[in-house]
Computed example of a mutant assay.
Amino acid sequence: MADVTVHRDVVFHRPPDRESPLELDVYEPANGGADRPAVVVYHGGAWIEGEKGQLEALERALAEQGYVCFDANYRLSGEATFPTPVEDAAAAVRYAKANADEYGVDSDRIATTGHSAGAHLAALIAAADGGFDSTDAPVSSTVAAAAPISGVYDLRDREQATANDVERQFLGGGPDEVPERYERASPAAHVDDATPPTLLLHGDDDDLLPADGAREYARTLAAADRPVELGILPGGGHGIVVDPEDWRERGVETVADFLDRRL
C-alpha cells in the first residue's frame, strides 16, 4: 500500500464578506511526482451540515493510486444560500489549478466528486463549465470529468406544496419565490456539448435520494451526446463510500476505474 501525505487546513478561499477563510485538506502520494491527475472532493450533509474529512477513505484510496485529492469545505446553507456554496466549490477547483505546480498536478486533468449534497456540487460545477466563477477569476473552474455519488441532479419542477425544506433553505425560498434558483442550481439545466464525461454512482436501495434521479440525469447526458456511465450498486444505500459496508470498496473501485479511463 502506497503512503499518502496529507496537508491539513490549507486556506483556499478568503471570501470578502466572511471573517474566517475557507480551508481544504490535500491528499497526495507521498513519493511526489509531476503532472498527476487530481480530484476536488465535496462532503455531503444536505448543504446544511458536514465538513471535509467525510470522504477520507475514498481520498486515501485515490491518493494511493496516484491522484492528488483536494477535500474542500464550503459555506453551509445556515450561513449562506445559493449560489454562495457553489461559488465556494468552484473556488476549490480554481485553487487546485492555480497551485498545480506546487502539488505536481496536471491542471488539464482535474475532476470533481462528492457525496449527496457534495455530489450535487460536483455535478453542477462540471456541467456549469465555469458558470459560477467571478468575472475576474484568473483561472476557470472547468473540469475534465465528474463522478458524483448519491446525488440530486434536477431541482426543477418542484411543486410549492411538496418542496423539500432542505432545498428551500439551500436555495433561499420555495419554487414559487425563487424559481430561477431552482433552475440554475440544477445540473441537468446546464448540460450542453461542453459537459465533461460523468460517472453517476448510486445505490439501488437509496431511500433518501432514489436512484431514479441518477438514471434520469444519465438519460439527459446521453440525449446531449455526452459521455456518461451509470453505476448502480445492488443493495447500496445512500451512504455508499461513506458507511463501512461491503459496497464501499466497490464504490471506491468504480470511481477509481472511471477516473483512470477519463483523466
Rank of each mutant, 00 (worst) to 15 (best):
D165Y: 14
A127W: 12
R168M: 11
G203C: 03
F132E: 07
R168Q: 12
D157Y: 08
A211S: 14
D207S: 13
H190A: 06
A211T: 02
S140L: 07
S186I: 12
D206P: 10
L124Q: 09
P148I: 08
V139P: 08
L199A: 04
E177S: 05
E159L: 13
F170E: 07
N164F: 09
G151Q: 02
E159M: 08
E183M: 11
D206I: 11
G151M: 06
I149F: 06
G172S: 11
P187R: 02
T135L: 12
H190E: 13
A188L: 05
A161F: 05
G172F: 08
D154Q: 09
V191A: 02
G174S: 06
D133G: 09
L208V: 14
A189H: 10
A137Q: 05
V166N: 14
H202P: 06
R181Q: 10
T198D: 02
E177Q: 14
S186K: 02
G203D: 05
H120R: 02
H120I: 00
S141V: 13
G203S: 00
L121T: 00
A211R: 03
N164C: 09
A147N: 09
P138A: 02
D206M: 05
D212S: 15
T142Q: 15
A137W: 10
D176R: 11
A123W: 08
E177R: 03
I125L: 06
D204P: 07
A144M: 04
L201C: 06
D207K: 13
D207P: 00
S186M: 10
D207A: 07
A211W: 11
H202R: 01
G130I: 02
D157S: 11
E159W: 09
A146T: 12
V166H: 12
V166W: 14
A119P: 03
L199Q: 11
F170D: 02
